[in-house]
Amino acid sequence: MLKLKQAEKIQGHSKMFSNVDLEIRQGDCVTIHINADTRVTLMQLLTGKEELSSGDIWIDQQLMTKGKKPSWEKVGFLFLNDGLYDRLTVRDYIKFNIKLFGSTKTVEEVLNFVQLTKEASVKIGHLTFSKRQRLLFARLYIHNAPLMILSDPDQNVDIESKRIIINGLNQLQKEDHAILVLTSNMESALTFSNHVYRMDERGLHEVNESQENNHDEEKLDEQVDTTLVEFNKIPTKVNDKIILFDPVEIDYIESIKGSSYVYVGGSGYQCTFTLNDLESKLLSFGFYRCHRSYIVNLQKVREVITWTRNSFSLMIDDGEESKIPLSKNKMAELKDMLGL
C-alpha cells in the first residue's frame, strides 16, 4: 500500500532523513519513532504538500509529487490537530461522516468501536480531549481506507482512550488494513505494534531486540576497564557538568541509539554507562529490566497497564505519569516477583 524508495528530504541546510526504504503491505501495522519536526514534514510529503529531495513515495501504485493529492479512497489520515464540529452531537457527527464516506457501518457500530455510546447525544464541544480524539479515530474507522496514517494518535489522551485506540488499531490490522503510526514517544511506538522503526537523518532503523543488545555488548567491552571503583551513585553528564544521582531518586532509564538516559523527575540525563552495566549495578536497589531498552525503578511504578493480551506498559509515579513499555516475556517474570 505504502512504499518509500530511497527517500531523502533536505530542508534548508539540514538533512531530515535519508536512505529511507519502507514498504507497508495490507495487514501490516508499522510505527515510526520520529521527532516532531520530521513528523510534520513526513505528513506533508504523504499528503502531497511537499516534495522529497530525492527518492519516491508510492501510495497504492500512485507516485506522490508536490501538488498531487493522494486518492482519499485509498488513504485515511488522522492528524494531531484535526477539528470537529463543536455544536453537533456525537451521533450527528458520526451520521454525517457515514453519509459523507458512503460507509455501510451503522452509528451504533461506530459508537461501540470507540466506546462513546453513552456520549451519543452529547455536544462535541462538551467532550473531553481524550473523547474528542476517540471521535476523530471513529472518523478514520468510518473512512475505512485500505491505508491509514496516524500522527501521534495517543498524545495527551487518558489511559482508557489509549487502550481503545490500540485495540481498535489491532482490529483494523486484522481486517487487513495497512497502518502507519508516526509518534515522537518511544513508549507509544513500542505499544502500538511489533514493527517499530526509528527515523532520523541517517535513515530508518528497525528497533528490534537483537540490535539494541549488540550495542550494549560492544559498549560493555570498552568500559570494563574504566569502572574499577564501585560506588553507589549514578553519574550523568549535562554539558560539561557531571551530576550524580542516588539510585532511589531515579525513576527509570531508557536506551536511545545505544546511549542510556537516566530519568529523574521527568527530565532525562545522559549516562555514560550502558544499560547492561546499570542493570547489574542497580539490581540490588530494586531496579528491573522491563524491556530491552528500559530499566525501571520498581519502587516508582504506580500501575501496570494492560493494553491488549500481549502489550503492556508501566506507569511511573514521577508527577508526569510517564509510561514505559513492558515486554511480554518480562510481564510473566514481573508477576512472579510481585507474587501474583
Binding site: W72, E73, F77, F79, D82, G83, Y85, L100, F101, G102
Partner: peptide, 13 residues
C-alpha cells in the same frame, strides 16, 4: 478556523 475543512477535503467528496 476549526480545522474541519481539511477533513472534508480529505474525504472522497
Amino acid at each position: 478556523e476549526k480545522n474541519t475543512l481539511r477533513g472534508l477535503m480529505m474525504s472522497p467528496a
